[in-house]
Design a protein around this nucleic acid. Structure first.
Length: 331
DNA sequence: GGAATTTGACCCGG
DNA sequence: CCGGGTCAAATTCC
Protein backbone atom coordinates (compact mmCIF):
# COMPACT_ATOMS: atom_id res chain seq x y z
CA UNK A 1 0.00 0.00 0.00
CA UNK A 2 1.48 3.20 -1.05
CA UNK A 3 -0.05 5.69 1.24
CA UNK A 4 1.91 8.51 -0.22
CA UNK A 5 -0.24 8.22 -3.28
CA UNK A 6 -3.01 9.73 -1.32
CA UNK A 7 -3.42 13.46 -1.40
CA UNK A 8 -4.19 14.04 2.22
CA UNK A 9 -1.58 11.70 3.39
CA UNK A 10 0.96 13.83 1.63
CA UNK A 11 -0.69 16.75 3.27
CA UNK A 12 0.28 15.43 6.67
CA UNK A 13 3.87 15.36 5.61
CA UNK A 14 3.50 18.74 4.06
CA UNK A 15 2.18 20.00 7.33
CA UNK A 16 5.20 18.58 9.08
CA UNK A 17 7.53 20.38 6.72
CA UNK A 18 5.65 23.64 6.92
CA UNK A 19 5.44 23.48 10.66
CA UNK A 20 9.14 22.87 10.73
CA UNK A 21 9.63 25.90 8.56
CA UNK A 22 7.44 27.86 10.87
CA UNK A 23 9.55 26.84 13.82
CA UNK A 24 12.71 27.77 11.97
CA UNK A 25 11.25 31.14 11.15
CA UNK A 26 10.47 31.77 14.76
CA UNK A 27 13.97 30.87 15.73
CA UNK A 28 15.37 33.15 13.09
CA UNK A 29 13.26 35.94 14.45
CA UNK A 30 14.59 35.25 17.91
CA UNK A 31 18.14 35.25 16.61
CA UNK A 32 17.62 38.56 14.86
CA UNK A 33 16.50 40.09 18.11
CA UNK A 34 19.58 38.81 19.83
CA UNK A 35 22.65 40.91 19.05
CA UNK A 36 24.90 38.20 20.44
CA UNK A 37 23.98 35.84 17.66
CA UNK A 38 26.33 36.04 14.73
CA UNK A 39 24.74 37.05 11.46
CA UNK A 40 26.16 33.94 9.85
CA UNK A 41 24.01 31.88 12.11
CA UNK A 42 21.00 33.80 10.94
CA UNK A 43 22.09 33.40 7.38
CA UNK A 44 22.47 29.69 7.84
CA UNK A 45 19.06 29.48 9.39
CA UNK A 46 17.60 31.46 6.53
CA UNK A 47 19.06 28.94 4.11
CA UNK A 48 17.54 26.15 6.07
CA UNK A 49 14.18 27.85 5.92
CA UNK A 50 14.58 28.26 2.21
CA UNK A 51 15.40 24.61 1.90
CA UNK A 52 12.44 23.64 4.03
CA UNK A 53 10.01 25.57 1.93
CA UNK A 54 11.62 24.32 -1.23
CA UNK A 55 10.88 20.85 0.06
CA UNK A 56 7.31 21.86 0.77
CA UNK A 57 6.89 23.21 -2.72
CA UNK A 58 8.27 20.01 -4.17
CA UNK A 59 5.81 18.01 -2.13
CA UNK A 60 2.92 20.09 -3.39
CA UNK A 61 4.06 19.69 -6.97
CA UNK A 62 4.54 15.99 -6.57
CA UNK A 63 1.28 15.67 -4.71
CA UNK A 64 -0.68 17.34 -7.46
CA UNK A 65 0.93 15.05 -10.00
CA UNK A 66 0.10 12.04 -7.95
CA UNK A 67 -3.44 13.19 -7.56
CA UNK A 68 -4.06 13.06 -11.24
CA UNK A 69 -2.63 9.65 -11.78
CA UNK A 70 -3.60 7.85 -8.64
CA UNK A 71 -5.60 4.74 -8.88
CA UNK A 72 -6.37 3.61 -5.37
CA UNK A 73 -7.85 0.24 -6.01
CA UNK A 74 -7.98 -2.91 -4.01
CA UNK A 75 -7.47 -1.53 -0.57
CA UNK A 76 -9.65 -1.04 2.41
CA UNK A 77 -8.67 2.51 2.56
CA UNK A 78 -11.68 4.67 3.07
CA UNK A 79 -11.34 8.07 1.56
CA UNK A 80 -11.73 10.48 4.40
CA UNK A 81 -13.78 12.85 2.45
CA UNK A 82 -14.60 14.72 5.56
CA UNK A 83 -17.76 16.40 6.57
CA UNK A 84 -20.78 14.45 7.41
CA UNK A 85 -20.19 12.14 4.54
CA UNK A 86 -16.80 11.03 5.61
CA UNK A 87 -17.92 7.52 6.11
CA UNK A 88 -20.16 7.49 3.18
CA UNK A 89 -17.65 5.78 1.06
CA UNK A 90 -20.67 3.80 0.14
CA UNK A 91 -20.31 5.02 -3.33
CA UNK A 92 -18.73 2.05 -4.96
CA UNK A 93 -19.54 3.48 -8.32
CA UNK A 94 -17.40 6.44 -7.64
CA UNK A 95 -14.01 6.32 -9.20
CA UNK A 96 -10.97 6.58 -6.97
CA UNK A 97 -9.94 9.59 -8.89
CA UNK A 98 -13.09 11.32 -7.92
CA UNK A 99 -12.53 10.34 -4.33
CA UNK A 100 -9.17 11.95 -4.43
CA UNK A 101 -10.59 15.13 -5.71
CA UNK A 102 -13.23 15.15 -3.09
CA UNK A 103 -10.62 14.52 -0.46
CA UNK A 104 -8.48 17.40 -1.55
CA UNK A 105 -11.47 19.61 -1.76
CA UNK A 106 -12.58 18.87 1.74
CA UNK A 107 -9.06 19.28 2.93
CA UNK A 108 -9.30 22.86 1.92
CA UNK A 109 -12.75 23.77 2.93
CA UNK A 110 -12.92 22.10 6.29
CA UNK A 111 -12.54 24.11 9.38
CA UNK A 112 -8.86 24.12 10.00
CA UNK A 113 -9.31 23.51 13.66
CA UNK A 114 -10.70 20.03 13.17
CA UNK A 115 -8.45 17.13 12.43
CA UNK A 116 -10.23 14.28 10.81
CA UNK A 117 -9.22 11.05 9.23
CA UNK A 118 -10.67 7.68 8.60
CA UNK A 119 -9.34 4.20 8.87
CA UNK A 120 -10.93 0.86 8.47
CA UNK A 121 -10.38 -1.97 10.86
CA UNK A 122 -11.29 -5.54 10.25
CA UNK A 123 -12.67 -7.34 13.23
CA UNK A 124 -12.76 -11.07 13.69
CA UNK A 125 -16.10 -12.74 13.21
CA UNK A 126 -15.96 -13.89 16.80
CA UNK A 127 -15.99 -10.32 17.93
CA UNK A 128 -18.78 -8.50 19.52
CA UNK A 129 -20.99 -6.35 17.47
CA UNK A 130 -20.13 -2.98 18.85
CA UNK A 131 -16.69 -3.24 20.30
CA UNK A 132 -15.24 0.24 20.53
CA UNK A 133 -12.10 -0.74 18.64
CA UNK A 134 -9.22 -0.37 20.99
CA UNK A 135 -6.79 2.23 19.81
CA UNK A 136 -5.02 3.02 23.02
CA UNK A 137 -7.31 5.80 24.04
CA UNK A 138 -10.19 5.60 26.37
CA UNK A 139 -13.45 6.44 24.69
CA UNK A 140 -16.89 7.08 25.97
CA UNK A 141 -19.87 6.61 23.76
CA UNK A 142 -22.11 9.63 23.65
CA UNK A 143 -24.41 8.85 20.80
CA UNK A 144 -25.52 6.55 18.10
CA UNK A 145 -27.37 7.39 14.99
CA UNK A 146 -28.81 5.70 11.99
CA UNK A 147 -27.20 7.09 8.94
CA UNK A 148 -29.08 7.56 5.76
CA UNK A 149 -28.21 4.82 3.30
CA UNK A 150 -26.14 2.93 5.81
CA UNK A 151 -27.10 -0.50 7.01
CA UNK A 152 -25.62 -0.04 10.43
CA UNK A 153 -25.85 2.85 12.86
CA UNK A 154 -22.89 5.08 13.51
CA UNK A 155 -21.52 5.24 17.01
CA UNK A 156 -20.15 8.47 18.40
CA UNK A 157 -17.37 8.37 20.95
CA UNK A 158 -15.46 11.06 22.77
CA UNK A 159 -12.36 10.88 24.86
CA UNK A 160 -13.04 9.84 28.43
CA UNK A 161 -10.79 12.68 29.52
CA UNK A 162 -12.98 15.28 27.93
CA UNK A 163 -14.00 16.69 31.26
CA UNK A 164 -10.99 15.88 33.37
CA UNK A 165 -8.42 17.09 30.87
CA UNK A 166 -10.46 18.93 28.35
CA UNK A 167 -9.55 16.49 25.65
CA UNK A 168 -11.78 17.14 22.67
CA UNK A 169 -10.87 14.13 20.58
CA UNK A 170 -13.81 12.21 19.21
CA UNK A 171 -14.28 9.31 16.93
CA UNK A 172 -17.07 7.76 14.97
CA UNK A 173 -17.38 4.06 14.42
CA UNK A 174 -19.50 2.57 11.75
CA UNK A 175 -19.76 -0.93 10.46
CA UNK A 176 -19.15 -1.25 6.79
CA UNK A 177 -22.11 -2.05 4.62
CA UNK A 178 -20.14 -4.28 2.37
CA UNK A 179 -18.36 -6.20 5.07
CA UNK A 180 -19.86 -6.28 8.56
CA UNK A 181 -16.48 -7.22 9.93
CA UNK A 182 -14.93 -4.04 8.76
CA UNK A 183 -15.33 -1.08 11.03
CA UNK A 184 -14.85 2.36 9.61
CA UNK A 185 -13.42 4.60 12.27
CA UNK A 186 -13.25 8.33 11.82
CA UNK A 187 -11.10 10.19 14.29
CA UNK A 188 -11.59 13.86 14.88
CA UNK A 189 -9.53 16.25 16.86
CA UNK A 190 -6.29 15.84 18.69
CA UNK A 191 -5.92 14.18 22.05
CA UNK A 192 -4.91 16.91 24.42
CA UNK A 193 -4.78 14.35 27.19
CA UNK A 194 -1.31 13.48 25.93
CA UNK A 195 0.17 16.94 26.22
CA UNK A 196 3.53 15.87 27.54
CA UNK A 197 4.10 13.68 24.59
CA UNK A 198 3.26 16.46 22.21
CA UNK A 199 5.62 18.77 23.98
CA UNK A 200 8.36 16.21 23.59
CA UNK A 201 7.68 16.05 19.90
CA UNK A 202 7.93 19.78 19.60
CA UNK A 203 11.28 19.69 21.29
CA UNK A 204 12.44 16.94 19.04
CA UNK A 205 11.58 19.02 16.02
CA UNK A 206 13.27 22.02 17.50
CA UNK A 207 16.33 19.94 18.14
CA UNK A 208 16.36 18.52 14.71
CA UNK A 209 16.29 21.73 12.78
CA UNK A 210 19.63 22.73 14.18
CA UNK A 211 21.27 20.04 12.16
CA UNK A 212 19.31 19.56 9.00
CA UNK A 213 20.96 21.32 6.17
CA UNK A 214 20.01 19.63 2.98
CA UNK A 215 17.02 18.53 1.06
CA UNK A 216 16.87 15.33 3.04
CA UNK A 217 16.33 17.24 6.21
CA UNK A 218 12.69 16.48 6.48
CA UNK A 219 13.11 12.81 6.00
CA UNK A 220 15.72 12.84 8.66
CA UNK A 221 13.48 14.80 10.90
CA UNK A 222 10.66 12.40 10.51
CA UNK A 223 12.89 9.43 11.09
CA UNK A 224 14.52 10.97 14.07
CA UNK A 225 11.22 11.76 15.60
CA UNK A 226 10.24 8.22 15.13
CA UNK A 227 13.34 7.12 16.98
CA UNK A 228 13.27 9.72 19.69
CA UNK A 229 9.72 9.37 20.78
CA UNK A 230 10.10 6.13 22.73
CA UNK A 231 12.91 7.61 24.72
CA UNK A 232 10.79 10.11 26.51
CA UNK A 233 7.76 8.45 27.93
CA UNK A 234 5.18 10.35 29.80
CA UNK A 235 5.30 10.21 33.53
CA UNK A 236 1.67 10.47 34.26
CA UNK A 237 -0.67 7.65 33.54
CA UNK A 238 2.29 5.41 33.73
CA UNK A 239 1.14 1.90 33.80
CA UNK A 240 2.12 -1.42 32.52
CA UNK A 241 0.06 -1.39 29.45
CA UNK A 242 0.47 1.90 27.82
CA UNK A 243 3.46 3.91 28.69
CA UNK A 244 6.07 2.88 26.26
CA UNK A 245 3.52 1.94 23.74
CA UNK A 246 2.26 5.42 23.67
CA UNK A 247 5.58 6.92 22.93
CA UNK A 248 6.55 4.36 20.43
CA UNK A 249 3.36 4.83 18.64
CA UNK A 250 4.58 8.16 17.51
CA UNK A 251 5.72 7.87 13.99
CA UNK A 252 6.44 10.12 11.15
CA UNK A 253 6.65 8.64 7.78
CA UNK A 254 9.51 10.01 5.79
CA UNK A 255 8.79 12.00 2.72
CA UNK A 256 9.80 9.16 0.52
CA UNK A 257 6.86 7.16 -0.60
CA UNK A 258 7.82 3.95 1.08
CA UNK A 259 7.97 3.53 4.81
CA UNK A 260 11.18 2.01 6.10
CA UNK A 261 10.84 -1.65 6.78
CA UNK A 262 12.20 -1.04 10.23
CA UNK A 263 9.22 1.09 11.00
CA UNK A 264 6.87 -1.62 10.08
CA UNK A 265 8.75 -4.16 12.07
CA UNK A 266 8.75 -1.80 14.94
CA UNK A 267 5.06 -1.46 14.62
CA UNK A 268 4.61 -5.17 14.77
CA UNK A 269 6.85 -5.59 17.73
CA UNK A 270 4.92 -3.01 19.64
CA UNK A 271 1.68 -4.59 18.76
CA UNK A 272 3.12 -7.71 20.26
CA UNK A 273 4.00 -5.81 23.37
CA UNK A 274 0.60 -4.33 23.37
CA UNK A 275 -1.10 -7.64 23.09
CA UNK A 276 0.93 -9.00 25.94
CA UNK A 277 0.62 -6.08 28.22
CA UNK A 278 -2.88 -5.01 27.66
CA UNK A 279 -5.51 -6.68 29.70
CA UNK A 280 -8.28 -4.34 30.61
CA UNK A 281 -9.51 -3.90 27.10
CA UNK A 282 -8.85 -7.25 25.62
CA UNK A 283 -12.45 -8.10 25.79
CA UNK A 284 -13.04 -5.32 23.38
CA UNK A 285 -10.66 -6.62 20.87
CA UNK A 286 -11.50 -9.94 19.42
CA UNK A 287 -10.03 -8.60 16.27
CA UNK A 288 -6.59 -8.96 17.80
CA UNK A 289 -3.76 -9.51 15.40
CA UNK A 290 -5.88 -10.87 12.67
CA UNK A 291 -7.84 -7.71 12.67
CA UNK A 292 -5.01 -5.28 12.43
CA UNK A 293 -5.77 -3.37 9.36
CA UNK A 294 -3.63 -0.43 8.84
CA UNK A 295 -5.48 0.54 5.81
CA UNK A 296 -4.05 3.93 5.58
CA UNK A 297 -5.35 6.45 7.97
CA UNK A 298 -5.76 9.78 6.44
CA UNK A 299 -6.44 13.14 7.78
CA UNK A 300 -8.38 15.51 5.73
CA UNK A 301 -8.33 18.47 7.92
CA UNK A 302 -5.38 20.22 9.31
CA UNK A 303 -5.24 22.29 12.38
CA UNK A 304 -3.36 25.49 12.18
CA UNK A 305 -3.20 27.06 15.55
CA UNK A 306 -0.99 24.51 17.23
CA UNK A 307 0.93 22.91 14.46
CA UNK A 308 3.26 20.80 16.52
CA UNK A 309 0.71 19.19 18.69
CA UNK A 310 -1.55 18.55 15.82
CA UNK A 311 1.23 17.17 13.78
CA UNK A 312 2.02 14.84 16.50
CA UNK A 313 -1.50 13.69 16.48
CA UNK A 314 -1.71 13.19 12.81
CA UNK A 315 1.38 11.23 12.29
CA UNK A 316 1.46 8.87 15.08
CA UNK A 317 -2.06 7.80 14.56
CA UNK A 318 -1.83 7.80 10.86
CA UNK A 319 0.95 5.30 10.79
CA UNK A 320 -0.58 2.62 12.88
CA UNK A 321 -3.48 0.34 12.98
CA UNK A 322 -6.56 1.38 14.78
CA UNK A 323 -6.01 -1.06 17.57
CA UNK A 324 -2.60 0.20 18.25
CA UNK A 325 -2.26 2.16 21.46
CA UNK A 326 -1.16 5.72 21.21
CA UNK A 327 -1.49 6.44 24.79
CA UNK A 328 -1.62 4.54 27.96
CA UNK A 329 -3.88 7.02 29.56
CA UNK A 330 -5.65 5.82 32.58
CA UNK A 331 -8.64 3.69 31.96
C1' DG B 1 -23.24 5.05 43.91
C1' DG B 2 -20.52 6.22 40.20
C1' DA B 3 -19.46 5.35 35.53
C1' DA B 4 -20.88 3.99 31.09
C1' DT B 5 -24.40 3.35 27.65
C1' DT B 6 -28.76 4.20 25.38
C1' DT B 7 -31.82 6.98 23.00
C1' DG B 8 -34.94 10.70 21.85
C1' DA B 9 -34.55 15.62 21.36
C1' DC B 10 -32.24 19.40 19.85
C1' DC B 11 -28.82 22.15 17.15
C1' DC B 12 -26.81 23.60 13.07
C1' DG B 13 -24.90 23.63 8.47
C1' DG B 14 -25.83 22.79 3.72
C1' DC C 1 -36.06 21.18 5.36
C1' DC C 2 -33.02 17.31 5.95
C1' DG C 3 -29.53 14.81 7.96
C1' DG C 4 -25.33 14.51 10.69
C1' DG C 5 -23.60 15.53 15.14
C1' DT C 6 -24.26 16.47 20.02
C1' DC C 7 -26.72 16.86 24.35
C1' DA C 8 -28.69 15.13 28.32
C1' DA C 9 -32.05 12.42 30.89
C1' DA C 10 -33.00 7.70 31.65
C1' DT C 11 -31.28 3.31 32.11
C1' DT C 12 -27.94 -0.25 32.83
C1' DC C 13 -23.73 -2.05 34.51
C1' DC C 14 -20.08 -2.89 37.80
Amino acid sequence: MDRSSNGCWDLTKLLAVLSHGHEQTRQLEAHLDDPSVHHLVCKSLARQIESTFQTAISMVVEGSRTLTRTNNTGTYYSPPSGGTDSLQSKSPDRAPFEDDHERMETCNKRKISALRWTRQVRVCPAGGIEEPLVDGHSWRKYGQKDILGAKYPRGYYRCTHRNSRGCLATKQVQRSDEDPFVMEVTYRGAHTCTVKHEKMVGEAISLQHDTDINSQQNNDLLLQLHKQAPLAPKTDDLNSKGQILDSSSFSFEPSSSSAPASCMQRHDSFIDSFMLARTSEMNYLPLSRCGVSNYGAQETELAANTPMSDMDFCFRQGDFGADFPFDGSSF
